[in-house]
Amino acid sequence: MAAKPAETRRLYLQIADKLRALMEQPDFARNGRLPPERELAERLGVSRPTVREALVALELEGRVEIRMGSGVYVCATHGEATSAVPNEDELGDSLVDNMAARSLIEGAIVASVAPFAKPKALKALRAIYDDMAREVAAGQIPIGPDRAFHAAIAQMSGNEVLIRLIASLFDERHSPLSTKLRDHFENDGTWRAALGEHKEILDALEARDPVQAQAAMQRHIKASLERVMAQRKQG
């Protein structure tokens, strides 16, 4: 299969290509350790989140190892490819792009449904939130209730296209790239914060306030991205 033109490939994959080339330079990764994300971002002319996504792509490829609290290191066996390594199409979309799309679309949806939310739908949404709260309190990751919460708001629109779209965008979190990012940078504290943000969305819907509902949804999605992308590794 012919390679995709560079300009049509995801930006983080283009940056991963550049990092591979830099890793071949003898003085780039001193003692096997790559420069900090900030330095890489400045050198490559992109944002730190894009660099982080590129590094995770290289980790999935087996070329580097991300050690929390220490840095990113070249793997001694990086030249050995395995069948388990996902190809470019399997890696998934940029989490930054995905969350930007969700913020725009889910923000518009929740604003449009807030004034007309039916008591039955709100009661069901409250029950989903309660399920999420119980799982968080038990130290579990509430993936099921989280998805159900966002899906339920989309269903309030009655628009099947939007319902499918939100489900597809949400399920992108299970792509290899997004899963690895979350494995590294999410923790119990991030889910406690997310629970409070869902409460703000629910409260705004129950008040039938479209402005606050949209603001709460967009704050939540922005904060969710920042919890994965803004946390710093030492070094």
Rank of each mutant, 00 (worst) to 15 (best):
L195K: 05
R134I: 05
L95F: 13
V211I: 13
E186P: 00
T50R: 02
Q14N: 11
Q218T: 13
A111S: 14
I128G: 01
V56Q: 06
L95W: 08
Q155D: 13
E197S: 04
I109W: 00
M217A: 15
M1S: 14
A167H: 10
G189W: 02
M132I: 00
L91R: 07
E42V: 06
L40Q: 04
H78Q: 14
I163M: 03
Q25I: 12
E160N: 07
R192I: 03
S168Y: 07
A54F: 00
V211H: 11
A6R: 15
N159G: 03
E200W: 04
L205V: 08
G107Y: 08
E59D: 03
S103C: 10
A81D: 14
S178I: 02
H78D: 11
I105K: 00
A137M: 01
A76D: 13
F149P: 04
F116S: 15
F185Y: 09
F28C: 09
E37R: 14
E160K: 07
G32Q: 09
V64P: 05
Q218E: 15
L169I: 09
P115Y: 09
Q212E: 11
R173N: 14
R9T: 01
A111E: 10
V46H: 06
M1P: 09
M156P: 07
H198Q: 12
S168A: 15
A2S: 12
I66V: 14
P142E: 01
I163F: 02
G69D: 10
P119C: 12
Q212S: 11
K120N: 12
G139I: 08
S168K: 13
R173W: 06
V96D: 08
Y129F: 15
A167L: 12
D27Q: 13
D171M: 14
V51A: 03
R173I: 15
R173A: 10
G71H: 07
A76T: 12
A151Y: 09
L95C: 00
C75M: 14
G32A: 00
I109K: 00
A114E: 02
A100I: 12
A223T: 13
V136L: 04
K199E: 15
E59S: 10
H78K: 14
V96E: 11
K120G: 07
A100P: 05
Y12W: 02
P115G: 03
R52D: 01
G158P: 06
L125G: 08
A121Y: 00
I221H: 03
D171K: 12
S157W: 01
L11N: 03
K180N: 03
D209Q: 01
A2H: 11
E172N: 11
M23I: 08
E106G: 02
K123H: 13
D131C: 11
Q214T: 06
Q234C: 00
D203V: 07
A84H: 14
V113P: 01
I221P: 03
L60G: 04
K120C: 08
Y12H: 13
A193N: 11
A21F: 09
I143G: 02
S224W: 07
L162V: 02
G144V: 14
R63F: 02
P145C: 06
A117D: 03
N87E: 09
